[in-house]
Amino acid sequence: MSLLEVEGITKNFGGLAAVSHVDLRVDEGEVVGLIGPNGAGKTTLFNLLSGALKPSSGAIRFRDENITGLKPHQICHKGLARTFQSVKVFGGMTASQNVLAGAIFGDRGQMSPKQAGKEAARLLEFVGLSAVAAAPARDLTLANQKRLEVARALATKPNLLLIDELMAGLNPTEVAQAMDLVAAIRKQGTTVLIIEHVMKAIMSICDRILVLHHGEKIAEGTPQEIATSRTVVEVYLGE
């Protein structure tokens, strides 16, 4: 069943089409990868999906509901959460307060503080940050801050999680751990749309991959198809 359906979405910045007529479909339970060279419009697409930017044209349907033009907090409440390419943890707050905020506000304030606290502790455990729960978020390593963002986003109980470059700047061990984390997220029932530059990772964790170039979708298919696609190799992967 399709969870997210995007039709002809376009975003113009002045004369520049950062994202141009992109169609996109994500089914429940999938892990879909979004790749492309720098400036291809991947993060802009995430900003459109999560409501940070309003599209110039096109429509976004999420769980059979038109969410085009909704505000970020409304989209979050619909069950679509995200992380950020340049980490945006609440630096002065502790790791557990970060996740607590997600649990309390992502659920439209329906959770009691006690439940929210339990949920936050569970998610910190899930992403492997229990040991640093009481540390201010700004003191965590980059890898851990990225995990913290994932936990904060998961705390809002999303059906779809947009992950923007979980692995950039991480060492090989951390990359392997991040891949395990994405697998675990899918296993607990959250669909994932992920932007990533680490090819080894994206090829092994995704069911399908979309390739953006100059704001346009130039290819879509299984990792196998993408790796052997003539166009993709030319514009992005290289010979």
Partner: peptide, 13 residues
């Protein structure tokens, strides 16, 4: 105060 964008995407109006 820590980050308005992140707050909005965390479900805060």
């Amino acid at each position: 105060g820590e980050g308005e964008d992140a707050a909005a995407h965390t479900g805060i109006n």
